[in-house]
Amino acid sequence: MRHTTPADEHGQAAVSVQGVHKQFGDLVAVKDLDIDIRAGEFFSMLGPSGSGKTTVLRMIAGFEEPTSGRILLHGQDVTASAPFDREVNTVFQDYALFPHLTIAENVAYGLTVRGISKAERARLVGEALEQVQLSHVAERRPSQLSGGQRQRIALARALILRPKVLLLDEPLGALDKQLREQMQFELKQIQREVGITFVFVTHDQEEALTLSDRVAVFNNGRIEQVGSPREVYEFPQTEFVARFLGITNLLAGDAALAILGESSPHSVRPERVQIADPAAPATDGTISLSGRVLETVYAGAHTRYLVETESGMRFISEKQNNQSPRTDPVQRGDTVSLRFERSHAVAVPGTAVAAPGEPAAV
């Protein structure tokens, strides 16, 4: 299946991966992959370790050559081209800054190699550092900067060469949570300003949803689904996507038939499942299930509840902590009513029906 997308002004995708297969000995890392990425898009490749996403990035960069298939950049076949002959640049997780050079010298390195004049280098470096808001550290060494600052310098060094495509291999993975979230906003803002195609590899679901125009979800060397963050989260097309992108209650087989009136698999996200007083009447179109709270998990912005229904199915419910009580009114052991709108149970077409005896909800 080819995952196509609107082309650029010349009728071409910025990156086109056509029938690409990559094998390392007996290991098949990527299986007959087809995908187009448009110019100016922030495109994320999301998946667990070993799913093939980094191998695809390395093939686009030229660090690996496909076993078969083609890679085109803006319509030009670069499958056999060396990395330095491609109009791409790569930002790595480990920053790869030269410790003996100043920040300004690090950012200017690519320009120096290309023989750009000293005066022009100084002007471009100044603009690049201004763009990442680090002009004041130009004369420092990398060891004198924080992790977030080093990552921004690595980004400035990559962008100063104005590549047509910027490849980012888990660039925020080494940062702590707070700094990573801050850098997500900065990275997206920079991408919008420069208008360059970003191809971003991550295993962090929240990061992919936050940053991307579109997300490709990888599994076992294949793409399970491509779409906007909203599409892949709200309308997963396979069980893997439903489970990998957050938490879901997956209903299938007899459980789906009993609750929804049809046996085909459906996904209900925990935030769609509300906990109510069993005595309160349910509105039309609402599915109501009686159950007992097995566990509660307080996670700051939200609280999750594991509830077992009278028929033995287990559901996860999640509520935002948008009020400030000192104690949660719902406690472990409470008898509650689980409620969700029938329309919030989304069909998952690429999921096999659960066999008898398998868990109906997760």
Rank of each mutant, 00 (worst) to 15 (best):
T210A: 15
R230T: 10
V217Q: 04
A256V: 01
E207M: 03
H3Q: 12
I259N: 06
S135H: 05
D36M: 04
L72E: 14
F218M: 08
P163L: 05
L111H: 06
E231Y: 10
G19K: 10
E127S: 10
A14V: 07
P83T: 01
H344V: 01
G75R: 11
E207G: 00
G115A: 01
R326L: 15
V217P: 03
E130N: 09
E186F: 05
T335S: 11
I247H: 14
E170W: 13
S228M: 05
V28P: 15
L155A: 03
A301W: 11
A108Q: 09
S337E: 09
R326K: 14
V137H: 05
T202K: 11
F84C: 10
D254W: 08
G62N: 04
S16V: 11
G52E: 05
V107E: 06
I196P: 04
P171T: 13
L161N: 14
A301E: 00
T4W: 08
Q237E: 13
G221Y: 02
D8M: 01
I153V: 15
S264W: 03
L306M: 11
G126S: 06
G312A: 12
V199A: 10
T327D: 13
G11C: 00
I287F: 00
V132W: 02
D213F: 09
S228N: 07
A360S: 13
Q178W: 07
H344I: 04
D34K: 03
S290N: 12
P66F: 03
G126P: 03
R272D: 15
V241I: 06
S44C: 13
T79N: 04
D36P: 08
Q133R: 12
G126T: 07
A82P: 14
L209V: 12
I247M: 15
L27D: 11
G148M: 02
Q191C: 09
F42A: 03
P236A: 11
I259L: 12
P356T: 02
Y298P: 02
I287R: 05
S16K: 07
V199T: 09
V330Y: 04
R152E: 00
R339N: 11
F340A: 10
T67A: 10
E318D: 02
F200G: 06
S212H: 08
D26H: 15
L167H: 01
A82R: 15
D213E: 00
A108T: 11
Y305V: 09
L97N: 03
R58F: 00
S317F: 05
F63D: 08
P236N: 04
V17C: 05
V107N: 02
I35K: 06
A299F: 13
F92W: 08
L209K: 06
A299P: 02
F200L: 10
V201R: 12
G227F: 14
G285F: 12
P6S: 01
M59H: 05
L167N: 08
A61F: 00
H10I: 09
T296D: 05
Q12R: 15
A82T: 14
T4Q: 12
E127F: 04
S343I: 11
E239Q: 15
L245P: 08
V28G: 12
A108C: 09
L175C: 08
E358I: 10
V113Q: 12
L260Q: 10
P6V: 00
H344G: 01
G62C: 05
D284V: 15
V199P: 06
K31G: 09
T309C: 02
V194E: 07
T210S: 10
H21K: 13
V20R: 11
H266E: 12
M45A: 07
P278I: 10
D85M: 12
T5I: 10
F63N: 11
E41N: 06
S228E: 04
